[in-house]
């Protein structure tokens, strides 16, 4: 079986706790899609829920709110990974619940 648990833990730990241009607290907020405000909150929410709707204006708005490109790179990576991780965890929990009832 493909074992992604260790690689997944390393991926998540690194983007949240490793060195970066964005504050760790802001990276954590992007990962959780919670606790941000303004254009950054809007961008992060789109990354999580409807990334196909993101436009040049979304990026420009987040830059105008004072974020550098490297900070936005990190925050978008955190937002994408956070939502994918929640989906993955939800699915594994559903699988466990289904197996328990067998």
């Amino acid at each position: 079986m493909a074992d992604i648990k260790r690689a997944r833990m390393a991926l998540v730990q690194w983007i949240l706790e490793g060195p970066g241009h964005a504050l760790a607290t802001e990276r954590g907020a992007a990962f959780a899609n919670a606790g941000l405000a303004g254009p950054l909150a809007s961008l992060v929410d789109k990354v999580a829920k409807c990334s196909y709707k993101i436009t040049d204006e979304d990026i420009a708005g987040a830059k105008a709110a004072g974020r550098s490109e490297d900070q936005l790179f990190e925050l978008i990576v955190c937002a994408a990974t956070g939502q994918a991780a929640r989906q993955y965890d939800t699915a594994l929990a559903a699988l466990d619940a289904a197996a328990d009832q067998e």
């Binding site: 079986m1 493909a2 992604i4 978008i76 937002a79 994408a80 994918a84 989906q87 993955y88 699988l95």
Partner: peptide
């Protein structure tokens, strides 16, 4: 199922990044 979810996890990140 777990193997399929691993694929899904990786591409739920990559597709979002490609779009963003």
């Amino acid at each position: 199922i777990e193997d399929a979810l691993a694929v899904c996890f990786a591409f739920n990140i990559t597709a979002r990044l490609a779009n963003a």
